[in-house]
């Protein structure tokens, strides 16, 4: 009995510092966001007025907010699906196939991830440039040189996809390495026996690889949501500033604009609350629908 009590105390003291830091730097600021969303506040001084849920009711009537919501969801969907597909494909190619220069490709794919977003944005701004950009120059080979240049970052209908392109390019390497790590753990014997049974590459991939890295895939799905919301802000800020005319405004860039430029900090925090709840809910839903029986090997 005594030892049990002592052990409990020991665990308590071991955890206390970490819990304390967690509370101070994560729990309290999060609660603060919720609290601030109920105020009308400029953000710099101490003139605050409590206005209840008015910020939220305004938010739900705002067309601009729905536009940013649409843009964010569109980005989450496109970036997740495309990155996921490519990362899985490249990962299985690099682990399962005997390719020349495997390590080289591994490094090359990972490089975008260590580049700063500002650098990536500069690269893609150059690629997307209407007159001297790589993309238009390449397309001109097929289209002929006459005709209007395509405005990758200037056309309302295209710009969000251009943004997604840059984000996908940046993200693939990271997820590829994550998938490769768990693919490397799958015992070779499973593939050998499958091959003896006459299973082709595709069957092996879908029947062995995917089920056995399923836990990893589920984790990354949550990462996709969080990182797309966060990264889209950085890309928007450095590539388009939300333009043209708000066509690439996403959750966080809109929140930033309202909180700072428009002196409505409380309103910005209300957007923050919605983003928080939305990403939490989405991650929860994804987690629930992807639940499978855990496979051991």
């Amino acid at each position: 009995m005594d030892t049990k009590k002592g052990r409990g105390r020991f665990i308590f003291f071991c955890l206390a510092p970490a819990v304390l830091l967690f509370v101070i730097f994560l729990i309290i600021p999060t609660i603060d966001v919720f609290r601030m969303s109920l105020y009308k506040w400029g953000g710099y001084t101490d003139n605050k007025t409590f206005i209840g849920f008015q910020n939220f009711s305004k938010l739900f009537q705002s067309d601009k907010f729905y536009q940013t919501f649409q843009n964010s969801v569109l980005l989450i969907v496109i970036v997740t699906i495309v990155t996921f597909a490519f990362a899985l494909l490249f990962a299985s190619m690099l682990t399962r196939e005997k390719l020349k220069g495997q390590n080289f490709f591994r490094v090359v794919f990972y490089i975008p991830n260590i580049l700063s977003v500002v650098v990536i944005s500069a690269i893609f701004s150059a690629i997307y440039d209407p007159n001297s950009g790589l993309l238009n120059a390449f397309l001109n080979l097929f289209r002929g040189f006459q005709g209007e240049p395509i405005l990758w970052l200037g056309d309302h209908k295209i710009v969000i996809f251009s943004l997604a392109g840059a984000m996908i390019w940046q993200a693939i390497g990271y997820y590829m390495v994550m998938y490769m790590a768990s693919m490397a753990n799958i015992p070779e014997s499973l593939y050998e026996s499958a091959e003896l049974e006459g299973a082709g590459r595709m069957t092996q991939f879908f029947e062995i690889t995917i089920p056995l890295i399923w836990t990893n895939i589920r984790t990354t799905l949550t990462f996709f949501i969080i990182s797309t919301i966060n990264m889209s802000f950085l890309f928007v800020m450095t590539m388009t500033s939300g333009g043209p005319d708000g066509a690439t405004e996403v959750f966080l860039s809109y929140m930033y604009k309202e909180a700072y430029t428009n002196s409505s900090y409380g309103y910005g925090m209300a957007i923050g609350v919605i983003v928080f709840l939305f990403s939490f809910a989405l991650a929860g839903i994804l987690n629930a629908v992807t639940r499978r029986e855990h496979l051991e090997y």
């Binding site: 944005s121 500069a122 701004s125 997307y128 440039d129 209407p130 007159n131 240049p149 405005l151 990758w152 970052l153 200037g154 056309d155 450095t238 590539m239 388009t240 500033s241 333009g243 043209p244």
Partner: peptide
């Protein structure tokens, strides 16, 4: 082509 470059970068 102006709108394509009309951002602060």
């Amino acid at each position: 082509t102006v709108p394509a470059n009309a951002n602060k970068d």
